[in-house]
């Protein structure tokens, strides 16, 4: 999993605002940077306001070209709306997100896939699998003049792991990505297979990536081990060269989502030592 801090810091900065203010900002459409911040805010604060979901669904349908001057990404408002909908946990929005998963903007498809994964949307398994079926040479091939791949493979694979349907078809689609050129994609595939099958060998793939020479790869493996909560990773997590902040996030995952040995006592002690 790529490391991003979108969960904790507001995009483009901004002052603390109230829920009412966030809803107002999302409702207007004249200033998209206000909408962008408002969508992020509603997700971050896990808003329970009845208007939050309908407004975010409307924002999800908004399209706009990239505006380099404003430092805003392509379809910025729609992407942030998708991310927020993933956090709010309302299954009624799944059809809207499935529509976004068919959008021509791969950045929006990525945000929609992640949200569908967070919502454990079983209806998304078929379209997610379909997008990956062409394998590393198709879906996983680089786009011309861009660092991005044809499909947002990492997000699609991770969503399949999060949703948790371990059908032979899903496993067969993920498997070839274990040999993708890019270590971050390999990490996502190992993570998803570990989630789906609980087989030790996939955890061990992640441990290998935890020793990768690139910090960015070790960070991704840390986040993936934390997302699965695979407790046998405790020792290697302590030993890898990366920031304590990320190790703490990973260990939190082992405590909250894992089971078995090592137990909570040992995990909490390791966390204490990293503070």
């Amino acid at each position: 999993m790529a490391v991003d801090d979108s969960g904790s810091s507001p995009p483009g900065g901004g002052q603390p605002i109230s829920e009412a203010e966030a809803l107002d900002r999302l409702r207007q459409t004249a200033d998209q940077s206000l909408q962008y911040y408002a969508a992020w805010w509603l997700g971050r604060m896990r808003s329970r306001h009845p208007e939050a979901v309908p407004l975010l669904c409307a924002a999800l349908r908004q399209r706009q070209p990239r505006d380099p001057g404003a430092g805003v990404e392509h379809n910025a408002v729609a992407r942030n709306a998708a991310r927020a909908l993933g956090k709010l946990g309302d299954p009624a929005v799944v059809p809207d997100l499935l529509a976004a998963l068919e959008d021509e903007d791969d950045g929006l498809r990525e945000a929609a896939a992640r949200a569908l994964g967070e919502l454990r949307a079983e209806q998304a398994v078929a379209p997610l699998t379909a997008r990956l079926r062409s394998g590393p040479a198709g879906a996983g091939a680089p786009q011309a003049r861009s660092p991005r791949l044809q499909e947002p493979c990492e997000a699609l694979i991770e969503a399949l792991g999060d949703i948790g349907i371990a059908s032979p078809e899903v496993l067969a689609v993920i498997h070839p990505f274990l040999d993708h050129d890019r270590p971050l994609i390999r990490s996502a595939a190992a993570r998803a297979l570990l989630q789906l099958t609980a087989e030790r060998r996939w955890g061990e793939r992640l441990l290998e990536l935890l020793e990768h020479p690139q910090l960015q790869v070790r960070r991704a493996a840390l986040m993936d081990l934390g997302a699965v909560g695979w407790r046998p990773a405790l020792k290697p997590i302590r030993a890898t060269l990366a920031e304590n902040s990320l190790k703490l996030i990973a260990l939190r995952g082992l405590v909250e989502d894992g089971q078995g040995d090592p137990g909570e006592e040992a995990l909490l002690q390791a966390m204490d030592e990293l503070l």
Binding site: R252, V255, E256, E264, E265, L268
Partner: peptide, 11 residues
Amino acid sequence: TVPVVRLRARQ
């Protein structure tokens, strides 16, 4: 709201 914080406080 975070389970690991609650768990550590209980400990």
